[in-house]
Computed example of a mutant assay.
Amino acid sequence: MSAKLSHSSYTVALVGGTGLLGKEVANVFLTSYKPFFSRIIVTARDTTTAGAKALAEKGAELVPISPVDPLGSLTKAFEGVDVVINLVADKPCDFKDAIAEAAIKSGAKVYFPSEFGADHRINDFPGWDDTLWLWKGQHDRKYRQLGAGKTKVIALYTGLFLEFFISPLFGFAADAILTPVGSPDAKTALTSRTDIARALAELTLLSLNPETASSVPDDVRIAGSNTSWRQIIVIVQKVRDELNVEPRGEIKVQGTDLNAFREKLRKEQLEKPQPHPIEHIRALIGEEKLDFSSKNDNELVNPGESIWKWKTVEDLVRERGGKWMTVEEIVIGI
């Protein structure tokens, strides 16, 4: 802690700090990690929203970004900034490229691209991969090359958002039915948005400290937990019994054959690429490529859970009273 506090004049810029993940990251930087930063900049196209004003009240420095000249306004916003964290999700790729280019132009020491999901480097969807994942790989390579020797580009892979996994999006079709792709024993890396925010803060401090900067790899994988469908079933049933809440009884598994699922997805993707990789993710889970158990950097960002306790599936299920999210709740959350 003393080593971190001795470097309390850092400046961080959060792009997309009012979004789904961004607001969690901004809140963590503005509370638990505020003593480590002299300035916490949050850029937004509209700095008058309720979410932006709430962050300003906590000490964020709001900077508007011009929709007409995003590169110019971002470069100006990043003047004197040590770290740029790209938390933008549903924005054009040109805008995300402008964020990276501005970070390098302004002399930022570290840039985090908008990753925070599956480790798409290990995908095996030849000719029918998700287009956004393909672009992300190109983005990371391009700006690592442009920033070589000046700006370190750190891609953070976090698995799936814990808060959204136990939902109809990924096969939790009803309160007592699961429809996993492949084996129900395949594990998935699940990380809460708040834990992602803490990991970003720790990686920021590690990367800026000359004594620890070399310990941070270009690609970082974390997982609050690695949990299988079968383990989730046990957890949900246990919590429902303890809390005496309905529905009770057995949760049934209606599995889907992995090979048949992949072939169907391949044909559909070749015919009409989908705007979101939900089905690709379900295939990756079945292929056990979203299991970060054997290879992750949890000890780098949170050694022995000495800085915080990772939020688990059981923590979340207890918070929700033994239920999982409905489609309506997902839409509201997004």
Rank of each mutant, 00 (worst) to 15 (best):
H7D: 13
P113A: 04
L169M: 14
K91P: 00
L5N: 08
D297F: 00
A173G: 02
V181C: 11
L71Q: 10
N27Q: 11
W128N: 14
A50F: 01
V12Y: 01
C93S: 13
V15N: 04
F95V: 12
V181Q: 12
I233E: 13
I334A: 14
A26D: 07
G51Q: 11
K309M: 05
K150L: 12
L178C: 12
E319Q: 12
I65C: 09
K142S: 08
R318V: 10
Q138S: 13
P303T: 01
E314Y: 05
S207M: 01
P35M: 15
K252F: 10
H120L: 10
K272Y: 07
K58F: 05
S73N: 07
I99H: 04
D69E: 14
I222R: 00
P303G: 04
A54S: 14
V313E: 11
Q145S: 14
V234A: 15
S306Y: 01
T256C: 12
E250R: 10
E202V: 00
V83W: 02
V12G: 10
P35C: 15
P35T: 15
G16E: 08
S9Y: 09
K23Y: 02
A173E: 11
A98T: 02
A186K: 10
D315P: 03
M1Y: 06
F165L: 13
I40R: 05
P247M: 14
G286P: 05
K309W: 03
K142M: 13
T212I: 01
A283P: 00
V12M: 04
S225N: 11
F112M: 01
I85G: 01
G19Q: 06
A186P: 03
